[in-house]
Amino acid sequence: MIEQTIIHISDTHLTPSGSQPSFNQEIDPYHKLQLVFDDVKKMDTKPNYAVITGDLIHEGQASDYANFKKIISRQEEELQIPIFVILGNHDRTEAFYNGYLSEPVKEKYYYKQQINGVDNYFLDTTFENLEQGYLDQQQLAWLSTSLQTSPETPALIFMHHPAFGSSLENMKFSILQNGLELQKACQKGNVKGVFSGHIHFSTTYLTGTILNCVSDSTAYHIDCRKHHQHFVSDVIGYNIISMSTETEIGVENRYLYCGQNTVKKIQVKSTDFIDPIVFEK
Rank of each mutant, 00 (worst) to 15 (best):
S174K: 07
E131V: 11
C186F: 12
D91I: 00
K172P: 06
Q267R: 15
R74S: 15
H13M: 11
F201N: 12
I157H: 05
P29Q: 02
I7W: 02
T203M: 00
I52L: 08
T45Q: 08
Q20M: 04
V191F: 02
M171R: 15
K41I: 10
K265P: 01
G117M: 01
V214G: 02
E169M: 13
T126D: 03
L140T: 02
S217G: 00
G117E: 09
G197N: 09
I2R: 10
I277S: 15
I266M: 13
K269S: 15
K32H: 04
K69W: 03
L180S: 14
I2Y: 14
K264F: 10
T204M: 04
S19T: 13
T53L: 02
K226H: 11
T45P: 00
I175K: 09
V214K: 05
F273S: 05
K192G: 07
C224V: 14
T209K: 04
D272K: 14
I277G: 11
S102W: 00
Y121C: 03
I277Q: 15
S270T: 13
Q4R: 07
F201K: 06
T149G: 00
E107K: 11
Q61W: 04
E78Y: 06
A163L: 13
G189T: 07
T247F: 05
E248G: 07
I222R: 06
E77V: 02
Y111W: 09
D216K: 00
I6R: 08
Q61E: 14
Q177M: 04
L182P: 03
D136F: 06
I277T: 15
V235Q: 14
L123I: 07
H161D: 07
T126N: 09
Q267V: 14
Q148S: 13
L87R: 09
E128K: 07
T93C: 00
P82M: 02
D44P: 03
D234I: 03
H221W: 05
S150I: 04
Y205T: 12
I72A: 06
L87N: 05
Q260K: 14
Q4L: 14
E76Y: 10
P82D: 10
L211N: 06
Y220L: 13
K264E: 15
Q137H: 15
S10Q: 10
N89F: 08
M243C: 05
D55Y: 04
M243G: 02
S215M: 02
S19L: 12
S144V: 09
D275E: 10
C213W: 09
F231E: 12
V232C: 03
K108A: 05
K281Y: 08
S202F: 01
S17P: 03
Y65P: 00
N116M: 08
